[in-house]
Structure formats: C-alpha cells, structure tokens
Design a protein around this nucleic acid. Structure first.
Length: 514
RNA sequence: GGCCCCAUCGUCUAGCGGUUAGGACACCAGCCUCUCACGUUGGUAACGCGGGUUCAAUUCCCGCUGGGGUCACCA
C-alpha cells in the first residue's frame, strides 16, 4: 500500500477513544420509514493511530449490519488529521482487521492489486488529509453565515488564561475559551484558528437512536476550534463536513462522541442542511469496570486472529455485547444482519468477558463444516511444524473429532497434533503411569485383535474389541487408557475407536506395538 | 468541579404497570461415559436507596447514592 503520506514512523499503541455517556430517555420514534425512502448511508471513521481494537470493531460491525440489513452503503473514511499520530501502518491495520472480520465497505480507500492505494466510491477522497479544499470551502461558508470566526489567540494566550482559571478556581478542568476574538471585526492576515460561534442562548438537542432525547444548553458549549492554524481541520469540522458531503444518513459511533454532537449539529444548522440520525454506542469496559485497555485483555482485532479465533466468533460476541435478540446467544452472520436493530442496543457500558467470548467462539468453531475447519486449522498446524494440506482427507476426518474439544484453532491444532506427528509426543507422566510392562503386553494383544478388522472403522473396531474384552472378562476402561496413551501420547483424546479409524490400520498397529 | 449519560443475578442481558423476575457465561452437584470434552438435569445468585403517581411498581416521575464519559490547535 502506498497511501503513504505519513512517513514511516511506526504506530504507537494508542487506545482509540470509545468512551461512554449514557442517558435514560425514552427512545424517539423510529425513523425507519424515512430511511426506507432514501438510501441508507452509514460510515465507519477510524483514526489511524494504532491497531483496530475491538471497540472500534464493534462500531464497524453495527454500522455494517445496518447497511447490509437495509441494503444501504457503508463508507470507510480515514480520519487522519492528527498528523503526529497517524501512520500508514495503522491504515493497513484497519484494512487488514476489517477484511479479516469480513466487514466489507462499499465506498472508501482500498488496497489496489498493484499494492498502491485506490479509492472506491464517488464521494471521495476518503482520507481527510486529502480533503483539505473541501474544509476550506465549508469554513468560508460558515464564516459567511456568521457561524464561525477567526481566532487570533495564541497557544500562549490560552495557556495563560488556563493558568488563571486554575488559580482562581483551584480546578484544572472547566476552562472555557473566553470568546476574546468572537466579535473581532478586523481580520489581519496573521496566523489564526477557526472557531465555531456557538449561540449564547438556546439549546441543541437530538433524539439519539440508542439513548433517546439528549439536550444541551448552548451556553454550556465551547467555541470549539474547527481548524488549526495550519489549515488542518479538527475532529468536529472534519466529521460534520464529511458526513454532509458524503451523504451520511445515520452517524453511529462511540458514546464518547455524545459531547461533540451538539457542535456538529450547530454546523449542520448553520449550513442549512438536514441532520442525520445519531446512534451513540456505549463503550466496552474492562472486567473491573474501567475503560478497556490492553492491560486487561487482547484488544487488537488481529490479536484474536493470531490466537485462532474465528471472525464469526469475534463478531458474534461483539454483537451480543451490548445488543440482544431475546434469549438467542449464537448467531450466524446472516441472522445478525436479519435481526440487528438499534432499539435493542443497550444503554449501559458492557464489560468484556473473555469466558463468554470463548463460549461463543467455541460454538462458532463447532458450526464449521469439517472441510472448512480443516483448511482453516492447517496454518496453525504449520506453526507447530506440521505440514498438512487443508484438503488432506485425514485432516478432514479428524477435524470433527476435535471440534467439540476446542475453543480456538490453536486448541484444535494442538488436539490434532498426534494425528500428524510420527511418533506422537508423549506425555511422560501419563506414559510412566499407564504404559507399564503389563499394559504393553495387553496392548500387543489388542493390536492382534484389531489387526484384521474390516472395515477399519469405529463401529467394527468397537464390536471386535468389546467381544475380546468380554471373552477375557475385562472392562474397556482397563485397556482404554493405556491404549489411548500408546495411540495419542496423551491421557485425554477423542474416543479410542474414532482415533483408530482416523489413524488407520497401519499406524494404529504400529503405535500399539511400539 | 461544570456539562452529559447510565443503573435487573459476579458478568452479558430479557422485561416495555399485575411474571414463581426469564435466558446465557461463570460456579456447584448429578447424569452420560474408554479419558477429555460436548451434551443433558438441577442448584446458588439480581430489580442500589428514598420519596411520589397508581388499585398495583423492576417497569412511570423526582431526589439521593453509585458508576461512566467529556471538558485540547486528539479523535
């Protein structure tokens, strides 16, 4: 990818904000009717300042589900206006993560086959730093309407004012721009930022698709900086202008943006353009209740890929974390698309629970057809030094045996190991305990018993072995464990006869006689 | 601290005035069984507090408490 206007500095590990604010108003009337009239256009607008974390992935998922459910469009927009922190590597991480999850976008930047960066869709470009003329245009309009103004205050001026505020109130927080340049009439050609001219009275409100009606008094709002001194837009300007020019009909984003929404609405209103719907998703919390960070769990989407999770497992868990559909816990992708709605998105921050995640993931793993499980687990086998083709019939035969015993592909690969390693790795403890001289004699007999069983399949094997045991007055459990260790090297495995069947006659005999 | 948001088992949640407050994860016990899982049966476990409104509040309103978010020329 050569979307490279970031230089090659490496990504810092920055946690994308996905904070939370909640409310308890009744939901507004659904605007499904209106949405049905016009094309639904939603967007996922990450900033490329680190890996894509699961909170961001959940936001992307909900947007994607909504677009797919209603036949709308999902736009991917890269909010790279923080030049300090944005990296090309992070852009790639966003692409890779979304692609792995299978969350495809209809418009936005795409990696071209040549390895460069192309653009798909007609409302691009989709990198904010490539849209500077658009922001200049809108700033001029806002100033023309009296909704924004040039502010010549320097950083030092503001720092001084902040210090005074702190001295006076004893509080570092709560400083607000005093409005020094608000009514300034001379417009010298000096370095300046652009600020939003927030009305001094009145209130700004909207009916959030998740949180219901939210209202804020304008006097509690700041004259936020819209554009830096260097002409690069800040979040509120970039988001509002892009959502307008890209025709976004529903803005669904993290709950930490509730506070920015009034300012953005003010921009829409000043411009006289229709408002989109807003949906603010509660944040994902750590088990302790604080903001989830990498101290608590793997938070990068790609970490889960490496740990052998399934995209559908991740998506299923993320969907259920904060959204529900009655008592259903396990969903296919198609069901998610069919059943998702904003009405059943919860208003409370949800704690990340790895156990529940694993449960959901394990269920998704078990739903895979043997062929798919085989081809997906093959790379994880390779990581253990076992070169097995994903299409290997023996692998496909073994896959269903380990599926109910595994949560991730890593578990599955581990459980598959002895089918493909010759000789198997022995659990020394189990070997010492169970493969006694006495047991070995018995295993030799067992080998003889199964030697000519035809077909060499589980039912026939079980019948033959049981008949032999009965004749000798023995119970299966007396030979099962030694046999298991001889065949698999372990004290725990799938059923003995299934294992023998997959191993085949030759190898089963060899291992029993070893 | 200001502003904003939230509040049902430990966790994720169902509930949208009258329910034995349901499900799932986790946990405990039993069953199944060649081991380990899967599966299955049962169990422990919740409406934060105080006022209203109402014949009736988990549910509606207010306050309190608690938790969270946000107060940048970050997003």
């Amino acid at each position: 990818m050569a979307c490279g206007f970031y230089g090659s500095r490496s990504a810092r590990s920055v946690i994308c904000p996905q904070g939370g604010v909640k409310h308890r108003c009744r939901r507004g009337p659904s605007s499904d009717n209106r949405l049905r009239m016009t094309e639904v256009r939603v967007r996922f607008a990450p900033s490329p300042t680190g890996y894509l974390h699961i909170g961001g992935a959940r936001t992307a998922l909900y947007n994607w589900l909504w677009a797919r459910k209603l036949g709308g469009k999902l736009i991917l927009r890269i909010e790279d206006t923080d030049r300090e922190r944005s990296t090309e590597q992070s852009v790639r991480a966003i692409f890779d993560s979304l692609t792995w999850l299978g969350l495809d976008w209809d418009e936005g930047p795409v990696e071209s086959s040549a390895g460069g960066c192309a653009s798909r869709g007609k409302s691009g470009p989709y990198f904010q730093t490539e849209r500077l003329p658009v922001y200049n245009d809108y700033v001029a309009r806002l100033i023309g309407k009296g909704a924004a103004y040039r502010c010549y205050c320097t950083k030092e001026d503001l720092d001084r004012a902040r210090a005074e505020h702190k001295q006076k109130t004893g509080n570092e927080q709560g400083f607000r721009y005093p409005g020094t340049c608000r009514e300034r009439t001379d417009q010298p050609d000096l370095k300046h930022v652009i600020r939003l001219k927030v009305p001094r009275s009145g209130a700004t409100s909207w009916v959030d698709r998740i949180k219901g009606r939210i209202e804020m008094q304008n006097e509690s709002l700041q004259d936020a900086v819209l554009m830096r001194g260097d002409g690069i837009p800040l979040y509120n300007l970039g988001a509002a202008v892009d959502d307008i020019t890209m025709g976004i009909t529903l803005v669904a984003r993290g709950d930490d943006h509730v506070i920015n929404t009034p300012q953005q609405i003010l921009i829409y209103q000043a411009l006289g353009v229709p408002l989109p719907d807003f949906a603010h998703l509660p944040m994902i919390l750590a088990p302790s209740g604080e903001k989830l960070s990498k101290r608590h769990a793997a938070v990068s989407v790609m970490d889960y890929k490496e740990q052998g999770y399934l995209p559908d497992g991740v998506l299923n868990y993320l969907a259920r974390l904060g959204w529900s559909h009655g008592d259903q816990e396990i969903f296919t992708r198609a069901e998610l698309i069919e059943k998702f709605n904003w009405e059943h998105v919860g208003e409370t921050g949800a704690r990340f629970d790895i156990k529940k995640f694993q449960y959901v993931q394990a269920n998704q793993l078990r739903m895979l057809p043997p062929e798919t499980l085989a081809s997906e687990v093959a790379p994880f086998l390779l990581k253990r030094g076992l070169t097995v083709a994903g299409s290997d019939p023996q692998l496909i035969a073994a896959a269903p045996l380990v599926a109910p015993r595994a949560t991730t592909f890593i578990d599955a690969a581990d459980a598959l190991d002895y089918f493909f390693r010759e000789p198997p790795v022995f659990d020394e403890k189990a070997k010492a305990k169970l493969l006694t001289a006495e047991a070995r004699v018995q295993l030799t007999d067992l080998a003889t018993v199964i030697e000519n069983v035809t077909p060499f399949a589980r039912e026939a094997l079980e019948a033959a072995v049981k008949a032999w045991l009965e004749a000798k007055g023995l119970e299966l459990k007396t030979v099962a464990q030694p046999a298991r260790v001889a065949l698999t090297g372990r004290a725990a495995s799938p059923g003995l006869f299934e294992v023998m069947e997959v191993l085949g006659r030759e190898r089963s005999l060899r291992r029993l006689r070893a």
